[in-house]
């Protein structure tokens, strides 16, 4: 089966198990270039495992992962690390900032790891931090920031090297409602303006209209939603396009 030509990342029949307990049981998924794809499902449904398989952190037991028409599942460890460093970005459910580095050094870490110069990395990190409203605390340690600010620094770190695909594993889990909406809007606006493909995992997609307009769960920002239940693609909710997608994209570009 050949992938549709506009799928930047696709996987077929993914199986994965942690020490025998199954996490993924035959998941197939395709992500189009530039879209924001939401992976929805309750805790333990395999969202994180799916994202880690797609980003090359885990090798699936069975199944294939292809990125830009090249196989990922056959790559060696070093090649997958290089792929992650140069083409992928990752946001966790907790900020995971390095406590001994300052905020801008945290944000610039991928660029420094790329080997780009100190000054270039610094200015790029500062630009992203400004964009995400944490520019004024760039030279402070992460422990002096609020949790929502730290999470925005983590977003800046994931975007600073302009990745092709951004994996966001429940990026709003530790935040309050207001901060959630803000972080998600910032994330989606940045992704749309740079044409970055986003895979957004979340367990609290409320699919009623009120939540969509409230913009708090990320459902409104996603172009498509894929449901995941017990390691399989869920038949419901529908995997069709979310009607509110285009409006929210317009709203996002205004908000940041």
């Amino acid at each position: 089966m050949a992938a549709p030509p506009d799928d930047v990342l696709w996987a077929r029949g993914l199986h994965y198990a942690y020490d025998g307990s199954p996490a993924l049981q035959g998941v197939s998924i395709g992500v189009r270039e530039g879209e924001i794809l939401a992976v929805a499902g309750p805790r333990g449904s395999g969202k994180t495992t799916l994202l880690r398989c797609l980003s090359g952190q885990l090798l699936p037991l069975k199944g294939e992962v292809w990125f830009n028409s090249a196989p990922v599942h056959t790559l060696g460890r070093a090649a997958r690390e290089r792929l992650r460093l140069h083409r992928f970005g990752w946001i966790d459910s907790s900020p995971r900032l390095v406590p001994e580095l300052t905020v801008w050094e945290n944000a610039a870490l991928p660029l420094l790891l790329h080997g780009s110069g100190y000054r270039a990395a610094r200015s790029a990190a500062h630009a992203w931090l400004e964009r995400l409203d944490v520019g004024d605390c760039a030279s402070r340690p992460p422990s002096a920031l609020l949790q929502a600010q730290r999470q925005r620094v983590a977003v800046a770190r994931a975007l600073v090297h302009s990745p092709t695909v951004l994996f966001a594993d429940e990026p709003t889990a530790p935040l309050h409602q207001n901060d959630r909406a803000q972080v998600l809007r910032a994330l989606s606006a940045a992704a749309r303006s740079h044409g970055i493909t986003v895979l957004l995992a979340s367990h609290d997609f409320t699919l009623d209209q009120a939540a969509r307009t409230a913009d708090a769960t990320g459902a409104a920002l996603a172009d498509r939603i894929v449901g995941l239940t017990d390691g399989r693609r869920a038949r419901t909710p529908a995997t069709g396009a979310v009607p509110a997608g285009s409006e929210s994209a317009a709203a996002c570009s205004l908000s940041v």
């Binding site: 952190q57 990752w90 790891l113």
Partner: peptide, 16 residues
């Protein structure tokens, strides 16, 4: 350990 985990997530090489 958290730093090692973070570096693995970002994709820093083991050589680093």
């Amino acid at each position: 350990a958290p730093l090692r985990e973070l570096l693995a997530r970002i994709g820093a090489s083991r050589k680093l």
